[in-house]
């Protein structure tokens, strides 16, 4: 087999690892104010890109990264090209802002229909903005292909995908005929670093930009999130008593004494 076509769905989100409180709640408009945060590729989608690149290295193939949204930052997503993806497709439309999970899956499946042929679709297990965690499996259902949730390893062989799927207390080795969809967890490993040369080369590579109107989307099926209220989370903060001492060892000993008093 001369290499397979892999599509990776990657979402651009406000940095989910920014310090607590930097994402502000706009109570009145029931929206998150994330203007203070930098945008990143969702961490689990970086894992998915890494999984695709590993397959490409081992069995050959072509990796296309697909991102959908409003106000996408092509320089950010170009990172995918710099690490070794072959194609980057951005689908942008104001109508894709703040839409619910099923609508995102709907729009992604329309974008995939436009791409045409594919063998394997990879998504992340969860996006760190709305933490919904099911765009992947619902997309698999819409595409009507075998769907495997939570992979810690993905390999392809003879028209099949072999996955180590995370299950309670261990993992399950499963297999499905291609085309198939797999959602990827962090255990596959972090995304490799691009070389300087690849970064420079990727700047000259084309990025394909599509509009919502380029897709066969049933716009009636595209809905906003139906949020009735956005609330502050419970306050987790406590008053911290810092250990004193001239040396770290002394602080450690002081801590032991205090804990021993508290717990006996």
């Amino acid at each position: 087999m001369t290499g397979i076509k892999i599509l990776v769905c990657a979402k651009q989100i406000p940095d989910p690892e920014a310090p607590m409180g930097s994402a502000k709640i706009d109570f009145e408009n029931k929206r998150m104010d994330v203007s203070a945060l930098r945008q990143v590729i969702n961490p689990y989608d970086e894992n998915a890109i890494e999984a695709a690149l590993k397959i490409k290295e081992e069995s050959g193939g072509e990796v296309t990264v697909l991102s959908l949204g409003h106000n996408l930052d092509s320089s950010l997503l170009r990172k995918a090209l710099a690490v070794g993806a072959d194609r980057l497709i951005l689908v942008e439309d104001p109508r894709f802002e703040d839409i619910d999970t099923n609508s995102i899956a709907q729009a992604l499946s329309a974008a995939i229909a436009r791409i045409g042929e594919f063998d394997l679709v990879l998504t992340g297990r969860q996006a760190g903005d709305w933490d919904s965690g099911h765009t992947g499996t619902v997309l698999g259902e819409m595409l009507g292909i075998p769907t495997i949730n939570l992979a810690r390893s993905v390999k392809t062989e003879n028209g099949h995908v072999n996955v180590l799927k995370i299950v309670p207390g261990g993992y399950e080795e499963v297999r499905a005929a291609l085309p198939a969809l797999v959602t990827v967890s962090n255990e596959v490993g972090g995304l490799r670093y691009p070389s300087m040369k690849m970064i420079l080369l990727s700047r000259r590579r084309p990025v394909e930009t599509w509009k919502g109107g380029d897709l066969q989307v049933t716009w009636d099926d595209i809905n906003g999130r139906t949020i009735t209220e956005l609330l502050a989370p419970p306050d987790l903060s406590r008053k911290c008593r810092f250990m004193e001492g001239d040396a770290p060892e002394e602080k450690g000993r002081n801590l032991a004494t205090i804990l021993k008093r508290e717990f006996g």
């Binding site: 406590r238 008053k239 008593r241 040396a247 602080k251 000993r253 004494t257």
Partner: peptide, 23 residues
């Protein structure tokens, strides 16, 4: 530290063994 009751600002490599020995 914002959610902690007790804090030690130092290198764990030197704090943890002494915490253990003292315990």
């Amino acid at each position: 530290f914002a959610v902690a009751d007790y804090g030690v600002v130092d290198d764990y490599k030197r704090v943890i063994p002494s915490l253990k020995d003292r315990w």
